[in-house]
Design a protein around this nucleic acid. Structure first.
Length: 272
DNA sequence: ATGCCTTATTTCATAAGA
């Protein structure tokens, strides 16, 4: 069974490349992030034509996640219980019934696929450590931890994957000196990842395919990809039972090349 | 080395990304 995760940076802008990649890589399960469209406008028909069932969770211009599966898609969760909403300024998100509370952003979708509980996750960016977005990021991680802990008491086969927007170690950024004072590398963010691993989840580190670092993201600007100045922020966190099934894992950096790529590459994991 | 930002929208400018 082949499972993959890919931040596509707009599923509609990326549709030709997504369809091409699906036909070529043939994942059984694909977790998508930053679909940047609504659930209704997700190109489900095109994907279903390739044999996938689709669970999409998007609310417009930002964020949005989806799960594609050719091995079943059951018990779909759009978001998760207790998922926080961004409560800082500006007040962009729609209000829900309770005064002052906004609707959670579309950052998580879960489903049971081929005997595995799978989550496609898009963690908040955080912007700067001083920002309300950063506090929200840590709150979101704490809520995610609570939900995964509950599910792990029931499930042995579970994968939480996606764009975590945190580089687990200094080896996971092209130049740690460039990231001093930035998000993605702070002790609190790395602790949030460590707290997830402490639940019994293992970081399935992919093979880079080029160079020593399995980066998954390269900024569009300034030739960062050709220079291989990247970050490893797209992660696959798997239970011990799933990790024991891993036959191989790699970063498909070919998908980052050419015309109209996402700024992230897919992470592909093969399971027995 | 596979190229020197890209996306959707409140569109010809802006906010956000990480």
């Amino acid at each position: 069974m082949r499972l993959a995760t890919w931040n596509v940076n707009s599923v509609r802008a990326r549709l030709p490349r997504l369809l091409e990649w699906l036909a070529e890589a043939k994942p059984d399960i694909l977790a998508l992030q930053e679909i940047k469209t609504t659930t209704a406008l997700f190109p489900s028909a095109e994907v279903e034509e390739l044999g996938y069932e689709v669970a999409a969770h998007g609310d417009g211009r930002w964020n949005g996640v989806a799960l594609l599966s050719s091995v079943g898609l059951e018990h779909v969760s759009l978001g998760f219980p207790g998922e926080p909403s961004y409560e800082g300024e500006p007040a962009e998100a729609p209000l829900i019934d309770e005064p002052g509370l906004r609707k959670p952003e579309t950052r998580a979708v879960g489903a049971n696929c081929g005997g595995i509980r799978v989550w496609s996750l898009y963690a908040p960016n955080g912007r700067t450590p001083e920002s309300a977005h950063y506090a929200y990021k840590l709150t979101w991680y704490a809520a995610l931890r609570t939900v995964l802990e509950a599910e792990l008491s029931q499930e042995t086969q579970l994968v939480a994957c996606g764009d975590f927007n945190v580089a687990p170690t200094d080896d996971d950024v092209w130049d740690p000196a460039q990231f001093v004072g930035s998000t993605h590398v702070t002790p609190a963010e790395r602790q949030a990842l460590a707290d997830l691993r402490a639940l019994g989840l293992r970081d399935v580190v992919p093979t880079p395919m080029k160079g020593p670092h399995p980066y998954t993201y390269w900024d569009y600007r300034a030739g960062m990809f050709p220079a291989n100045k990247g970050m490893r922020i797209d992660l696959v966190y798997a239970t011990e039972a799933v990790a024991a099934r891993v036959e191989g894992a790699y970063v498909d950096r070919e998908a980052r090349k050419g015309k109209g790529p996402s700024d992230h590459a897919p992470v592909v994991v093969d399971l027995s």
